[in-house]
Design a protein around this nucleic acid. Structure first.
Lengths: 236, 236
DNA sequence: ACCTGAACACCGTTCAAGT
DNA sequence: ACCTGAACACCGTTCAAGT
């Protein structure tokens, strides 16, 4: 029907920015910041880049890989504490490494808390980007600075990162998605209604189950994790 | 066109089992066991129950709530260790409570490892079913039996359950979904290729990052968690 | 080679309308 | 009241075909 020869796009669009992995990730990052990760779909991304969804599969294997790239981009903004840079060589006040660890882990958690659905994705991702490796490197450095044995340090990094990611993923749904916020109330109510008859221990510590701020609990959890990692011997 | 008066269904179908929340959950449970949670969709459930998807919303608020019900049904099959039942009163050999905790947590993890995508869902769920409360009750009982202070015990339950759930969720994708198994290899390769130049600490403990069996690492992680919870003081 | 239109095979949730 | 057909507004991924 309508003539298809008019090359309007040539003048209308800003040069159509040739597709590339970098362009893809940059656009995805922008959408994530503006509208949240759930809006970053292959179809949305494609239409944003003036193409069909199939074209994206030239640059990323699948959605999971795209999410991995987004995480690494985000990690660029995570500054490593000074203690982690001069790794392996303990200096300054004793136990400084613990503070450095908590700081770094809180930073990583805060980063993910800004994008909780990314955290959910990362939890099943085994990230492999250079900036994630830097993070592992820094955590290992701090643990070694604290004199934590090699195997405990190696396994500990897993434990610490998993906890940070899971915490962000868990908090996630609460403020972002519409539906899930009913569930906290439902659980809180269930716990408050749990009779000391059927659930004596819940009855005894009921208030403590809800005590503390998120920040307090998070810092305590990291401290407990670090303590456990530092003092629990691995098998064999 | 075709006459709609023939009540064939009356003879063909097994009485069409009136809709109910229990029936819904039972059907969902069956599909989950046979084909995995990703097949348990509202539409699939509806067609299985000979109705439209809209009808299900009379019995569950949304998918998240349905998943919560599935978890609680699953937890029916989790047996609590004897130590947890006679809670609060330490008896038998000292430190028996630690074994009980590890056992219970491993049991819970194993349960979820059988349905990793349910674990992913549970992580953002704050479950509130009676059987989940029983689990909280048992964990609290064991921690109290170990003389762990109230606040540490309360906050610790959160930490322990989150770790168990996150572990199952993480393992999850690996064997279940098709795509994600590439990522472990990708990460492993990235770590193996990380030069000791750029990543000295990774270079030093490289082998330990991959050492141990899943079972060994899980038990060590729970032991470390428990140790940290038991010995780390909460603020204020 | 690099790219993509069109299709395949699905989703959760809502709401006006029926019984 | 209780229930539901039909629609709304989407998904990820593949593959044959084009340039």
């Amino acid at each position: 029907m309508s003539p298809r020869r008019v090359p309007v796009s040539r003048r209308d669009r800003p040069a159509k920015a040739l597709l590339s992995r970098e362009g893809l990730v940059a656009t995805a990052l922008r959408i994530m910041h503006d509208e949240g990760l759930e809006r970053v779909t292959m179809r949305r991304l494609a239409s944003e880049l003036d193409t069909g969804p199939a074209s994206l599969y030239v640059y990323v294997r699948n959605t999971a890989e795209l999410h991995g790239a987004l995480l690494d981009e985000l990690l660029l903004g995570l500054e490593l504490p000074a203690e982690a840079v001069a790794a392996g060589r303990p200096k300054g006040s004793v136990e400084r490494w613990r503070e450095g660890l908590v700081e770094l882990l809180c930073g990583y958690t805060a980063l993910l808390l800004g994008h909780p659905s990314l955290a959910r994705s990362v939890l099943t991702l085994r990230p492999s980007g250079p900036n994630y490796l830097r993070l592992i490197e820094a955590l290992l450095g701090l643990l070694r600075a604290g004199g934590v044995p090699e195997r405990q340090a190696a396994w500990g990094v897993d434990l610490l990162l998993q906890h940070a990611t899971a915490t962000a993923a868990e908090q996630g749904t609460r403020d972002e998605s519409v539906d899930a916020d009913g569930e906290i109330h439902t659980q809180a109510m269930a716990i408050r209604e749990a009779t000391g008859d059927e659930y004596p221990n819940i009855g005894l510590v009921r208030d403590e189950l809800f005590s503390g701020t998120g920040e307090q609990r998070l810092r305590w959890m990291f401290a407990a994790l670090i303590e456990g990692v530092a003092t629990t011997a691995t098998p064999a």
